[in-house]
């Protein structure tokens, strides 16, 4: 536990030193505040459009931060050779990967928390305190980010940041189109295409499954069963991907 905490805290300290991180965060905050401008150019239910715009900004930029930090998570330690003195300790490699991962999740948690605080202030000043379901949607966003980060960590365990970025972006994109893969498979006449599409659907992550943005924007409550379902899916899938990351990293020689 001490090793895990120490690694996670150092990863957090390393991550928050990155200036690019702040650039992304500031840009996201500007968009959250700037969502008020949408009020001026919208016809209809302005309050919902503003909430939707602000929430989408948080979703997108939090995902960008997760990918940006995740893809170089392990590679950076190998490239700078700081891993040499760390892994020569009585430290299982699984704990190293997990410690780095948890440090990154902590960083993301803080970043999302900052964005949510700014969101709350902006929304409260313009249209009153947002409904509770909005905060539930941010909680589920964190679960989505944890899964995305696990994928980025897996790619980072065996490739450089460029390749890892490409793969993570691909997973992110496909993961948001998972329902379309199912629809495509169901519409296909060929049995092979149907089976392939279904296999892909079940193997690849479904990031849309985490999203309750529509309910959040409209202030519609979400049932506990849905929340438990999403949590179980997120925890199970993240564990599998992290286990794969550990397996890959355990077999790797440090150049």
């Amino acid at each position: 536990m001490k090793q895990l905490t120490s690694l996670a805290l150092h990863t957090f300290q390393e991550a928050v030193r990155d200036r690019i991180l702040y650039s992304i965060l500031v840009f996201a905050l500007v968009l959250v505040v700037g969502s008020l401008a949408a009020e001026q150019i919208t016809i209809g239910d302005q309050a919902k459009v503003v909430r939707s715009f602000a929430q989408s900004s948080i979703d997108i930029f939090a995902s960008l931060i997760a990918m940006f930090l995740g893809v170089s998570l392990v590679y950076k330690e190998l490239d700078s050779r700081t891993a040499y003195t760390i892994l020569s300790r009585p430290l299982p490699r699984s704990r190293f990967v997990l410690g780095k991962y948890l440090g990154l999740v902590l960083t993301l948690g803080v970043q999302v928390a900052i964005m949510v605080v700014v969101y709350t202030v902006v929304m409260t000043l313009s249209q009153g305190l947002p409904p509770g379901v909005v905060y539930l949607s941010f909680g589920l966003l964190m679960l989505e980010l944890m899964l995305l980060t696990a994928w980025a960590t897996l790619f980072s365990c065996y490739s450089g940041p460029t390749t890892a970025s490409f793969f993570t972006l691909a997973i992110f994109t496909i993961g948001h189109l998972a329902d379309d893969i199912w629809t495509f498979g169901s519409a296909a006449e060929s049995e092979v295409v149907q089976q392939t599409a279904r296999a892909l659907y079940w193997c690849l992550p479904n990031f849309e499954f985490f999203s309750i943005r529509t309910q959040a924007v409209h202030g519609v409550p979400v049932g506990l069963d849905r929340v438990i379902e999403v949590m179980a899916y997120g925890a199970g899938y993240t564990t599998v991907v992290l286990a794969a990351a550990v397996l890959v990293f355990q077999r790797r020689d440090l150049k």
Binding site: E14, T82, Y84, S88
Partner: peptide
């Protein structure tokens, strides 16, 4: 076995650290 290294200290050829 990581336990093997609990009694070992290691200095790499060029040690790299978190410089901050």
């Amino acid at each position: 076995d990581p336990k093997a290294r609990s009694r070992m200290g290691f200095l790499p050829e060029r040690p790299y650290f978190y410089l901050h």
